[in-house]
Amino acid sequence: MVTKENLKDYAAKLMFDMDDEGYERTLKEFETVEKHMELIGKIENIKSVEPLVFPYVIYHANFREDEAKDSLTTDEVLANAKDTKADQVKVPKVVGE
């Protein structure tokens, strides 16, 4: 059974938080979700089937030639970053003092 603590942990792993009411509503939603998920396990012989990760078998390999192509300029790459310095995105130190 999923608990509120579980939900907080799942959210933290994806790097966000919610207010308490949000977790309460999510917990309630999970009752329906779990009921739905049970339907997935009910299909006979499901384990003998290969998981399908793509709509159909790929019969073509669509790779381009290994040639240099135009790419974004440094200015373009940095255009949407809120804080930049010396052609780089500026963030707090990630290595200890």
Binding site: M37, I40, I43, I46, V49, P51, L52
Partner: peptide
């Protein structure tokens, strides 16, 4: 139980 079984179901349906 969930992710792979859903992909298996997708296969059966397709």
């Amino acid at each position: 139980r969930l992710f792979k079984n859903a992909l298996r179901l997708r296969h059966i349906i397709v």
